[in-house]
Design a protein around this nucleic acid. Sequence first.
DNA 1: GTATTTCGCTTTTTTGGAGAGCATTTAGTA
DNA 2: TACTAAATGCTCTCCAAAAAAGCGAAATAC
Lengths: 146, 146
Amino acid sequence: MLSKKAKYALKALFVLAKDYGSEALLIGDIAEKENIPKKFLEAILLDLKNQGILYSRRGKTGGYGLLKTPEQITIGQVIRIIDGPLAWVPCARQNGYQPCDECEDVENCSIRITMRKVRDATAEILDNTTLADCVRMEKAPIDWSI
Amino acid sequence: MLSKKAKYALKALFVLAKDYGSEALLIGDIAEKENIPKKFLEAILLDLKNQGILYSRRGKTGGYGLLKTPEQITIGQVIRIIDGPLAWVPCARQNGYQPCDECEDVENCSIRITMRKVRDATAEILDNTTLADCVRMEKAPIDWSI
DNA sequence: GTATTTCGCTTTTTTGGAGAGCATTTAGTA
DNA sequence: TACTAAATGCTCTCCAAAAAAGCGAAATAC
């Protein structure tokens, strides 16, 4: 499951992406706009800053802004920062592989093999969807009836 | 993340699938073989029985067995029974759709649209992988070097 | 009567979500 | 220079819910 934290992070980044190029935005303003608890959002944006997604300025003219363009930031990156690896099991991770506790034959474990396929399919989608894509999607949504 | 409960369920079903056609197996034997806490496995197998995957016999000659063939039971079914829907967000579910708390424009929500793609890709894999496939995989694993 | 499953209840541990409080930085101003 | 207002940075704590596990009594089939 996607945590609320990750959902908040994405929502906040969408706001920042729409505002890309302007001045830094205040935590309080983003929080109010997206109905996110301010203190919670504070920790989230700090995480994103520490991982090189955002810059911040303290003090009177402070705020947060994107450090890269909306085209350069993917949903996959964000979710990994907030919620960790995409794989359903540690032994199916691309990075940070960890064997299961008791799997004796990791190489031939069918759970690992199947979950690896799921991870790859998921990464394919999330790593190829950018903030810019999302903003575009919400402005001009796909017509599903076609 | 795949819960331990679901992983235990799959491991236990693999054992039952390999033994398909023979007599019912005891919880204790399965638990010992796969290093699963017996009492925990008890609850798991009960869930699977109540969802029509397994049959059980009480008493001296009791035990558990598959109610369908290993070809008819998919990983997707099992995970849904134990861990619930495959979708990362309730608003991306195929069955049991639930709108987000504060999403005003559910129709055009880019998170929902993206997560729906992930769910569909995941379901495609998990609903087309059966217990029989898994047993086969572990006996004659795919040669990845080709 | 006995071995075995089933079921209800409780406990422990982990995690997610949220918030409080103080420290630090910055800009403006007297 | 010194002070203050306004913003982020950081640490700690708490609460609720879920996951994981355990205990013991009841039901069932031989």
